[in-house]
């Protein structure tokens, strides 16, 4: 066994696989934690902070993601259009109906590193509102939460 701590390099990084997860009735935060871990590669012992060694993740049934308590009515996403008085607010519940991929991607993005690497990792996340996804040929492996 080598005595020096192993570091993956972009050339030797373990082969990336595809995972698929069904978001039905899984609460948003719990889903995002596990997805973020896999995107970062922290689920494997070869994890190297400066090299992207995470897998791809497909989230299906995004529109059925769970929001516990009254978070669907109470929690709001805010954005600003840069016009005076242009503050837009939308509840998590309505965003989930309208654009679930935005809701889930946002939750995961905030759990990833805030740098170029984090944006690269987020690109490996594919969220779909329904049960269909166009990644059959990648042969995704089911992931349980």
């Amino acid at each position: 066994m080598r005595r020096q701590t192993y570091f993956a390099t972009p050339q030797t990084v373990p082969a990336k696989t595809w995972r698929i997860v069904d978001a039905t009735d899984v609460s948003l935060g719990r889903l995002a934690v596990d997805v973020a871990q896999v995107l970062m590669g922290k689920h494997r012992p070869e994890y190297t902070p400066h090299v992207d060694c995470g897998d791809f993740v497909i989230v299906v049934n995004g529109s059925k993601v769970g929001l516990t308590g009254s978070k669907a009515e109470q929690n709001v996403k805010q954005r600003y259009t840069r016009f005076p008085g242009g503050l837009k607010e939308e509840t998590y519940g309505s965003l989930r109906d309208r654009r679930p991929e935005k809701l889930i991607e946002d939750a995961v993005r905030r759990m990833l590193p805030k740098n170029r690497m984090g944006r690269h990792m987020l690109a490996k996340l594919k969220v779909y509102p329904g049960a269909e996804h166009p990644h059959q040929s990648q042969q995704p492996v089911a992931m349980t939460i």
């Binding site: 701590t5 922290k42 689920h43 494997r44 012992p45 070869e46 994890y47």
Partner: peptide, 16 residues
């Protein structure tokens, strides 16, 4: 930092 990295890796290996 190295100790933190080892712990992260061991955690992953244990979780598996």
């Amino acid at each position: 930092d190295m100790r933190r990295l080892w712990i992260t890796r061991i955690t992953a290996a244990c979780r598996m």
